[in-house]
Every structure is written in C-alpha cells, then in structure tokens.
Write a protein that binds this DNA or RNA. Structure first.
Length: 548
RNA sequence: GGCCCGUUGGUGAAGUGGUUCAACACACAUGCCUUUCACGCAUGCAUUCAUGGGUUCAAAUCCCGUACGGGUCACCA
C-alpha cells in the first residue's frame, strides 16, 4: 500500500492529471507585459467598497497593459453564500463599466478558462489534490472539531504557537494503511497539505506595494479540502485557479499578507511560479477616536449600493477611489483633463502602505465638479435614469414636463464657470422644488433685512407695475432703478460710502424679490428663475403679499 | 500572546540624506468679487514629519529601542 493507493481510494473517479488540465487550459498567448488580473469575490451578500476598489485596480492593470481582467466566483463556502449576490457583483461592475472580459453567469461561460465558479471546478481541484497525495504532500486528517479545540486550548495554556504543525499534526504520522482503513470505515476526513517548511527560517518575498519583506516559512498543515462538500479552501483554490487561469497579478486586501507563506509553499509543491502580489491597504473609517476597517453593519457607505442610491455619478465614485489608490491621480488628471482614469498609469509602488480613511467630503467635491461640467441634456438623462429607480417624486416632476425640468437644470449651466451646487442626483429635488407650483406651498419665508409687510408689498407692486422684465440684458438695471425710486442705493459702492443716506441697498430689494418668489433667501440667479417661471406665475406668487 | 505591517496637518498625501524638505487636493478660516447662495480669486492653516536615542558636516528620509494603531493565527474568504 502506498500513496497512490490512498490517492485512488479517495478519488477513484478522477482520471485527468495536471498535465491534462495544462493542455485544456494552455498558457495564455500574451507577451510578458500583458497582465492577467482577476476579481474574485465570494458571493456573501453585497458589493463592499474595499472589493470594488480592488476591482478598479485589477481593471486598470489589465487596461494599462492591454491584458485581461476576469471575474471568478469564489463560492466554496456554501454556508455563507447568499443567493443573488453574484448577480449583484456583476451588475455593479457593469454599472461602473468595470466589465470583465471573462466571467460566468447564469450558465453562460464567457472565456476559455472556465468554469469561473469554484463550486463547478471540483474535479479540477481533486485532480490536483490527488497528485499531491500521490507524492506524499497531502494527507487525510481525521481530527474532529473537538480534537482541534483540545489542541488549541493546550497550545494556548502552554503558550506554544497555535496551529496544526509539527507534533501537533497527529494525522500526518498515520501510516498509509491506517489512513486507508479509517477511510474505508467511513470516518469523515479533510485533506491537509503536508508542509515542509520551518517556521524558524525566513524567506524573501516581494510585495508590489510594500516591497521586500522577510517572512517566516509556513509549517502549518492547512486544510485544502473540506470534509462535507469536498470543495477546496481558499488557500488551495487560489493556487489551482490562478495557475490554470494564468493570473499574473493578484490584487487582494492586506489581510491576506499573513497567508503568503502558505501560498508560496503550495505553489512550490507544484513547481509553479507564483503570481505577483499587490496587497492593498484597507479602507478605514473613523469611529470616535479610533479608526477601524469600514464595515457594512455600521457604515452604510461600505456598500456600493449606497452611492448608487444617493445618485453620485459613476465617474465621481471611481475618481474619489482613485485618490486613495494613487494619490497622484488628481494632479495627473488636472494636467490631462481630456483623459479618463483608464488612461492613468496605475503604480502599486505609489500606493500608500497604510490604511486610508475614505473621505465623503472629497467625493462630494469631485462629484460637484463633474456634475457642473455636464450639459443639461446629460444631467437630464442621468438624473432621470436615477429617479426612475430611486425617486418617485422626482420622476413625476420630470415627466410632468421634461423641457421645463431641463430649463431649470440649465440655470447657470453650460457656461465657463458653471454653478456647483449639485453633488448627487438626490440633491436635485430639494434644490428645485419651488420651481413647481404643484409643490410650492411654503409656510416659512426667509426674509432678510426688509421684513415690513407694507414695504414688501410696495416693493413687489412697484416692481411688477414699472420694472418687470425677463430680458437678462436689462433685468438688473431695472432692479437698480426700482431700488433708486424707493430710496435704496442702486449700487453697493454708493451705499457703503454713506449707508445712512439710504433705506437699504439693491441687495435688499433683490432679496425681497427672491424670497417673495421662492420663499428661499438662497437661490441661483433670480433673473433666470423669473424667465423660467414667467410673468403670470410670478405675479400670482407676489400677489399674496400685496396690501391695499 | 507569537508573527507581520504601519505611524508626515482635520482628511487623502508628495517628499527616501542637503540645492524651496514640508508640494498638491479636500475640509476649515478670513478677505475680495457679487442681487442672495454657490462659483471664481487672494490669503491663512504641520518651526515640523508618533517618540527616545544613534550614524552623519547634514535626517521626515539610514539604524536601534519605545509607544500607539492595524492585520493574522478556522473544514471564512
């Protein structure tokens, strides 16, 4: 009885060898510069901002090198799997135009290196495990959960390094005969990798972000195949998949750094070259005085749906993340205003090696700039699209009269220095509601210096009788004339020189005209608002303040 | 606890031994402009790079210690 017998007993129906799979999935025909990257989330519920930001990096690396970015579904943990999660992930990537070249969804496989869903790759993993068993680098372990708990508490109380290693690795000492007998008896087992490493020894490892690292060798016999569903653990699937799929760069969170030694050892056991690793810093969140990893439970902004629901433009979300990915991005973008983030050359070396706080104010700023640059047609399209999904009330307003809505959006837009007051589509309604008679029913008027009812009435009446115009050329001079007639300074300089000489100034007059029309003291250009509302509706609103 | 990673302003950070080394952007403050707000413009905002020591003519930059923060030690990824 030897290892081959053991391997055949465990995997009697696995006939393909590693060589067979290497033929089925030949090395990708690409030159050395062309990177192959992957986004490999597990479908556990929602799209996390940390994962998304890694996907951007994957996508950019592939784009920069004219390589391939693919999506792999890591669903080996059936317990944690949430239905619909993989659709959400693909949809989110597509929504942001981070589209993988190869992926699998709903039975459709796009690409020659699939399946891209790990649960469908069981046979492949088994072939690789079978090989490992046959050469004595993997073995069945019959330890129960209780055995392992006992081991752990012993290690804790005796202050030895925890883990299934050295003399604690009971099952690695079992003879092949015993192993075969126990399996025949039907005892449940997992398959563990047999480590040859020495924890006391260090080896050099280069991470593309952090640079040269000295790491301890792995000496833990990790589980590579689970007992219940016979699927591989992450560690093992990573080796097999990234080898067979030709991944050149693995982008993953910093939390994986500590498992690098075991991954390296497994690659070596197969004599495969490991990919390059880009361990990205975590996205953190300030919580009181401390910082911690951003989390879905506590932080709504951890989920990508947050940004979509609030209606931030896609490019704003991506660019705000770019400022964390490579902080020289903004300067580059300012110097190359016509280019997009896809033209930007990502550099892992320029990544910060410590975690970053994601600044929502920064997002708002980037977003305001982007929205201010949109034409009214673009903003109309984007905001309508958003409204249909997230705001019934805004949808109604838009559909009432699309051209009217566009006219409102166009206030102080499509000009050299456009207005920047919209950061997200969900802001729009609260900025334009007073333009709609259907919604206009204010109870609170934000009067300024002039609040005397008689005076307000007088100003409004005089304006409507003698100075009303919607001609933008002469609008303000008319307001000035009105101011003069009523004893207010027509221009600010005169007023400042001698304030006592006047009842107020032209700004006070404009404020009365503004508040009586909109109830708000702060609005965009009053003349443009008046143009859009038209004389009849203005008069109707003003008449409420007339006194006889 | 072991091992690993990190620590430049409120935030993202540039800067890896000297010649503007504390850039740039956000935020904040003030002023100008102005019919309000926003925009725009101008100015201000770290005598100091967690901390102690060392190397050096010279350190945010190199070395050692300390503190603090984070990660990881699963049949989860």
């Amino acid at each position: 009885m030897n290892n081959n017998d053991l391997a055949n007993l465990i995997f009697p129906n696995i006939n393909k060898t590693i060589e067979d799979y290497e033929k089925i999935y030949p090395k990708r025909k690409s030159n050395d510069e062309q990177a192959v990257t992957r986004f490999a989330p597990s479908p556990t519920g929602y799209m996390h901002i940390g994962g998304f930001y890694q996907a951007i990096i994957d996508y950019m690396i592939a784009k920069n090198t004219n390589g391939i970015f693919y999506l792999r579904n890591e669903d080996t943990d059936s317990q944690r799997e949430v239905s619909g999660a993989s659709k959400l992930i693909l949809d989110t990537l597509k929504y942001y135009n981070i589209v993988p070249k190869e992926y699998e969804f709903n039975g459709e496989i796009v690409g020659n290196y699939g399946p891209y869903i790990q649960s469908e790759r069981k046979e492949i993993y088994h072939a690789f495990i079978k090989y490992l068993i046959s050469i004595g680098r993997a073995y069945p372990c019959f330890c129960t959960k209780e055995d392992l708990d006992e081991m752990r508490s012993f290690q804790e109380s005796h202050k030895v390094r925890p883990g299934y290693h050295g003399n604690f690795a009971k099952c690695r000492k079992l003879s092949v005969e015993d192993q075969i007998n126990l399996i025949k008896e039907g005892k449940p087992y997992v398959i563990r990798f047999k480590s040859n490493g020495d924890f006391e020894k260090k080896f050099r490892f280069i991470d593309e972000v952090k640079g040269l690292l000295m790491l301890n060798e792995n000496d833990i016999d990790d589980v590579i195949m689970k007992s219940d569903n016979k699927l591989p653990t992450y560690h093992f699937a990573h080796i097999v998949d990234d080898y067979l799929m030709g991944t050149t760069h693995v982008v993953r969170g910093e939390e994986w750094l500590s498992s690098v030694p075991k991954h390296i050892e497994m690659f070596e056991a197969f004599d495969f070259n490991p990919p390059k690793y880009i361990h990205t810093p975590l996205i953190l969140k300030k919580d009181g005085n401390s910082t911690r990893k951003i989390s879905k439970r506590k932080d709504p902004e951890a989920s990508m749906s947050y940004y979509k629901e609030l209606g931030y433009p896609k490019t704003a979300v991506i660019e705000s993340l770019m400022t964390i990915i490579n902080s020289n991005y903004e300067q580059w973008h300012d110097a190359n205003p016509d280019k997009t983030y896809l033209d930007f050359e990502y550099s892992p070396k320029k990544m910060s090696s410590s975690g970053a706080l994601y600044d929502l104010m920064k997002l708002e700023d980037i977003s305001k700039n982007i929205i201010s640059q949109m034409t009214k047609e673009e903003l109309y399209k984007e905001s309508y699209e958003w409204a249909k999904n997230y705001s019934e009330s805004l949808t109604k307003l838009i559909e009432l009269d699309p051209d009217y809505y566009k006219a409102i959006l166009n206030i102080e837009r499509e000009q050299a220095k456009p207005r920047k007051d919209i950061a997200k589509y969900s802001d729009i309604e609260s900025l334009i509601w007073y333009m709609y008679d259907e919604l206009y029913n204010p109870t609170d008027y934000e009067w300024g210096k002039v609040s005397d009812e008689q005076e307000i009435s007088n100003i409004l009446k005089t304006y409507m009788d003698k100075y009303f115009t919607t001609d933008s050329e002469e609008w303000f001079s008319k307001v000035k004339e009105l101011a003069s007639e009523l004893g207010y300074a027509a221009n600010m300089k005169d007023y400042k020189k001698d304030p006592d000489n006047y009842k107020g100034n032209v700004a006070d007059i404009a404020t009365v005209l503004r508040v009586a029309l909109t109830s708000k003291s702060k609005t965009p250009d009053l003349c443009e608002i008046m143009c859009i509302l038209g004389k009849d509706r203005i008069e109707k609103r003003y008449r409420k303040f007339y006194k006889d």
